[in-house]
Design a protein around this nucleic acid. Structure first.
Length: 623
DNA sequence: CCGGATGTCGCCCTCTGCTGGGGAACC
DNA sequence: AGGTTCCCCAGCAGAGGGCGACATCCGG
């Protein structure tokens, strides 16, 4: 192991966390890419079983990295993905002392403790002697606040380059759900592919393999114990003459697997169209069919073609209604087993394998998590072609398009009113055509409001504390809540606030005081254009004009039902607020006259009483 | 080759909450 | 008589649940 020299990193270490998954890949691919100096990322390629499992809990970590908040405490059974993060280190300038030091001894298995959340990466190199520079090390940065350690049971640390002289290096960290060792999850062929190493001098590169298991240290989340299993040690001692590398593992199980692997002669099949590789020719052949458009199996009902008989059968089942997969807990049945599994998660088990790292949201499906994440990122991929609106999903855009088309697909069955959204119609039916409509009582006043959202507006407008004091219009009192102010001002309502300076007259309305003051000043601003007679009130002028200068004017006479005597006015003296009262403190008379209740008027009148003043029109008239 | 497991895309639905116009009450 | 206030109401968008249909992977 001492002979193993960790290749020097470039100016940037590729390391622990990044937004995307870095799937494992086959040795041929690695070799090819290494030769090209490219990154090993298999973007868009199919994921391995372990990756697929890990992807089940895809967690975008970028936002958290930036904000540095939100500690995750998921259930131990949750799956998490460990992604890679690029750590930029100016290799020549890095002060080694500034970083933590981890030395992986040339033993089969080494345990080191990393202080979590320190922000600084620790440097890990192989051997007892300190490295000459950071370039000979691998950066190990564990930011424990980014993910729960109990979810990271095993990692495989894969160094792709073998020499200090290399210009760049790549590391792969693969999260695995295996219980004890990451490699136990691999099927034979996969494992062998993982373990194959090429040496450039012999046509293969000599890679470094480590198995890194991370778990919380004794201090809980304050430190992290990395158990580093050296997978290269015996390779140095026991390299097969064929040149094919053999990689050792720490456990006896691994040793057995290594022996098994060493006995095999491998050949990998590399897809010329994509990055797929396989050690099984059957898998390879099957994969190659995915690149053809050949769909030999046609539905006899709709002529749609499918690649396999199974797909065709599932499709035909959608025509026939055949649903072989029946839910044991309800009456639902499905065409495929996957639909049943998903249904059971939604309705019965409530298992939600996809968790958001930024909030508590979890979902049954990855697509739902993907959609949810847009609410954090603000991403709106679906742009309206007619306006600036952009949506986070296709359905919202489609719904939005109704605002342009005017389409109202939802019709009320009672009144035939149409609505753009079903929810709007539902509220309409509830409020307009239902009994026992729920009402919302304001917790601060007696107001009852039909909709919760309107109650919210009510609370906002009337019961929100205002920093600046609001003054009463009529007195010096001040209030911080609008509702209290209004209630207080209402207490002034029946006050005769306007007091005459020259006599004891008082009234509620300023305009009445204006008229009254004219009785003191003698002012008569309203002049009859026909006879030059002047009046203090416009209303008096109007009455005068009709009576004396309008030949077509016929005064209405109200006859007393008892004696038949005629009167000019019918006075109603209903109590304010009673039906017929406009609520404005005015009393309506059948002639259309309005009596300001605040003005001096015949007192003590009851409904049906007659106003009889001395003068014309029999016993009483105001003319 | 088959079939189960898993992933992906799309559609539709519900629930929720905000907004602004209308109209009646109020001042 | 006119301005203001406030509840009613429909419009509209955000977020999430549930399912249909199909594709792909992989073990047997």
């Amino acid at each position: 192991m001492a002979a193993t020299e960790v290749a020097g990193p470039s100016a940037q270490f590729t390391k622990i966390k990044e937004l995307e998954v870095l799937p494992a890949q086959g040795p041929e691919e690695q070799g090819a890419q290494g030769a090209q100096g490219d990154a090993v990322r298999r973007a868009g390629g199919p994921l391995s079983a372990s990756e697929l499992q890990a992807e089940g809990s895809y967690r975008p970590l970028q936002g958290k990295l930036l904000e540095g908040e939100l500690a995750l405490v998921p259930a131990p059974s949750e799956k998490h993905i460990l992604t890679l993060q690029t750590v930029h280190l100016a290799s020549e300038d890095v002060e080694m002392q500034e970083l933590g030091w981890l030395s992986a001894q040339p033993a089969e298995e080494v345990q080191v403790v990393v202080q979590a959340g320190s922000g600084l990466p620790s440097l890990l190199w192989l051997g007892e002697e300190p490295p000459q520079s950071a370039q000979q090390c691998v950066a190990v940065s564990v930011q424990e606040e980014l993910y729960p350690l109990q979810g990271l049971e095993v990692m495989q640390f894969h160094l792709l380059e073998e020499n200090v002289s290399a210009t760049s290096r790549e590391h792969q960290l693969v999260a695995s759900g295996a219980q004890s060792t990451g490699l136990t999850k691999f099927e034979d062929g996969e494992e062998e592919e993982q373990l194959l190493v090429e040496n450039p001098l012999t046509g293969r590169t000599e890679d470094q393999f480590f198995l890194v298991e991370a778990r919380p240290g004794d201090e809980g989340r304050d430190e992290i114990v990395l158990t580093i299993s050296n997978l290269n040690m015996e390779e140095q001692q026991d390299k097969p003459a064929s040149g094919q590398a053999d990689v050792e593992k720490a456990s006896s199980v691994k040793n057995q697997r290594k022996t098994k692997a060493a006995k095999r002669t491998f050949r990998t099949f590399h897809c010329s169209i994509c990055v797929f590789t396989s050690s099984r020719v059957s898998s390879f052949n099957r994969h190659m069919k995915t690149h053809t458009s050949e769909k030999p199996h046609t539905c006899h009902l709709c002529l749609k073609a499918f690649r396999t008989v199974t797909l065709l059968r599932n499709h035909v089942n959608t025509h026939t209604g055949t649903r072989p997969y029946k839910c044991g807990d309800c009456d639902m049945a499905f065409v495929t087993s996957g639909e049943l599994v998903r249904h059971r998660r939604y309705r019965h088990t409530h298992e939600k394998p996809f968790s958001c790292s930024l909030c508590k949201y979890a979902s049954v499906e990855a697509s739902k998590l993907k959609r949810h994440i847009r609410s954090h990122t603000g991403e709106r991929p679906f742009q309206c072609r007619l306006c600036s609106y952009a949506s986070k999903d296709t359905y919202k855009l489609k719904r939005h398009m109704r605002t342009h088309s005017g389409e109202k697909p939802y019709e009320c069955q009672v009144c035939r009113a149409r609505f753009t959204q079903s929810g709007t119609m539902k509220i309409h039916v509830l409020q307009k055509h239902s009994e026992n409509v729920p009402k919302y009582q304001c917790p601060h006043c007696a107001t009852i409001i039909a909709r919760k959202s309107d109650l919210r507006v009510h609370l906002r407008n009337l019961h929100t504390y205002k920093a600046t004091e609001m003054k009463c219009r009529y007195c010096p009192a001040g209030f911080h809540e609008r509702y209290a102010l209004i209630q207080h001002q209402k207490s002034h309502r029946n006050e005769k606030r306007f007091k005459c300076q020259l006599c004891s007259y008082a009234c509620k309305q300023e305009r009445h005081m204006t008229v009254h003051v004219r009785t003191h000043t003698g002012e008569k601003p309203f002049e009859c254009l026909s006879c030059n007679k002047r009046f203090r009130q416009k209303q008096l002028l109007n009455v005068h004009f009709r009576k004396y200068h309008d030949s077509g004017f016929v005064p209405t006479v109200h006859a007393c039902p008892t004696c038949g005597k005629g009167f000019s006015r019918w006075v109603s003296s209903r109590a304010p607020g009673a039906p017929g009262d406009a609520g404005s403190g005015r009393v309506a008379a059948p002639q259309g006259q309005i009596f300001p209740t605040g003005l001096p008027s015949p007192a003590g009148r009851q409904l049906g009483e007659f106003s009889a003043s001395p003068g014309s029109l029999g016993a009483g008239t105001c003319f």
